Simulated scan of single mutants.
Amino acid sequence: MSKYLLNKFLFTVDRDPDLVERYRSEPRATVGWWESSYANRILGCHAGESSTWLSFDDTEREALATHDYPRLFELGAHPFLTLTLFIAMFERDHPPLGFQREYARRLAHVRLPYPDIAT
């Protein structure tokens, strides 16, 4: 499991409006494409700089592919990254602040101490 890779996915997808829409409409395909194309790129470097060892495990891949943000949080994804990305994807489907309330409702079972979000 790689909290770093989960957070990298959330961070990079959230910053590209086209990727946000692609992830909203085709989550499983987007996760697979991103993992094969971007997972091993080093943030802040040109496309030629990359590593070879990063990949999602099956649990992470499934949580991303099903938009399961409570599970992502339990896996250690940063809550600000999940919230901002999922607001961008689903706020339009809810009344004002409706998605934020849904997010809070679905994470209401989580009690302190929260899962470790350090990468």
Results as ranks from 00 to 15, higher is better:
residue 70 P to M: 10
residue 70 P to C: 12
residue 46 H to K: 13
residue 26 E to Q: 07
residue 33 W to N: 04
residue 114 Y to N: 07
residue 20 V to T: 07
residue 51 S to A: 06
residue 4 Y to V: 05
residue 119 T to K: 04
residue 21 E to P: 02
residue 46 H to A: 12
residue 53 W to F: 06
residue 18 D to S: 05
residue 44 G to M: 06
residue 50 S to K: 13
residue 115 P to S: 01
residue 104 A to W: 14
residue 60 E to D: 12
residue 64 L to I: 08
residue 60 E to W: 03
residue 24 R to P: 03
residue 61 R to Y: 12
residue 2 S to L: 05
residue 11 F to R: 01
residue 11 F to M: 03
residue 63 A to V: 03
residue 56 F to W: 11
residue 4 Y to A: 08
residue 88 A to E: 11
residue 26 E to F: 10
residue 28 R to S: 11
residue 69 Y to W: 15
residue 56 F to N: 09
residue 49 E to D: 13
residue 91 E to T: 11
residue 63 A to W: 00
residue 116 D to I: 04
residue 111 R to K: 08
residue 81 L to M: 01
residue 108 A to K: 12
residue 90 F to G: 12
residue 15 R to T: 03
residue 90 F to S: 11
residue 12 T to C: 02
residue 89 M to H: 08
residue 46 H to F: 11
residue 4 Y to I: 06
residue 4 Y to G: 05
residue 89 M to E: 04
residue 37 S to G: 09
residue 35 E to W: 09
residue 14 D to K: 10
residue 108 A to Y: 13
residue 40 N to C: 01
residue 37 S to E: 12
residue 109 H to A: 07
residue 5 L to F: 06
residue 46 H to W: 11
residue 30 T to M: 08
residue 61 R to K: 13
residue 107 L to Q: 06
residue 103 Y to Q: 14
residue 64 L to W: 02
residue 84 T to I: 10
residue 82 T to P: 10
residue 47 A to N: 14
residue 86 F to L: 07
residue 55 S to V: 10
residue 21 E to G: 08
residue 34 W to H: 13
residue 114 Y to D: 03
residue 68 D to N: 15
residue 104 A to D: 11
residue 45 C to S: 10
residue 25 S to N: 05
residue 48 G to C: 10
residue 81 L to E: 01
residue 64 L to N: 09
residue 51 S to F: 00
residue 96 P to L: 15
